[in-house]
Amino acid sequence: MLLIPCPWCGKRAQTEFTYRGDATVERPDLADSDSQWYDYVYTRDNPRGEHTEWWHHTGGCRKWFKVRRNTWTHEVISSEPPVRD
């Protein structure tokens, strides 16, 4: 049972959350190329090691946030709200 650190609620059991995968991909603009859209929807870095990913506190505050987690050791390193520049 992983403990996921929700930036708003603190550490909670993994069963309260929904996972959504890679949080490094960014939705392109309408004008961007086909290949950018293809990459956004389909291709993934899929690293063995540190991975930034979306989690959703479904059974809590219902916020999406980014978690930095190691896909090899399952160590949860940090979490942050979904800020964009």
């Binding site: 991975h51 896909t71 090899w72 399952h74």
Partner: peptide, 13 residues
């Protein structure tokens, strides 16, 4: 287990 993983081990839930 529903999260990306390369570890050949799973979790209890």
């Amino acid at each position: 287990d529903l999260y990306n993983s390369y570890a050949q081990r799973g979790n209890l839930p």
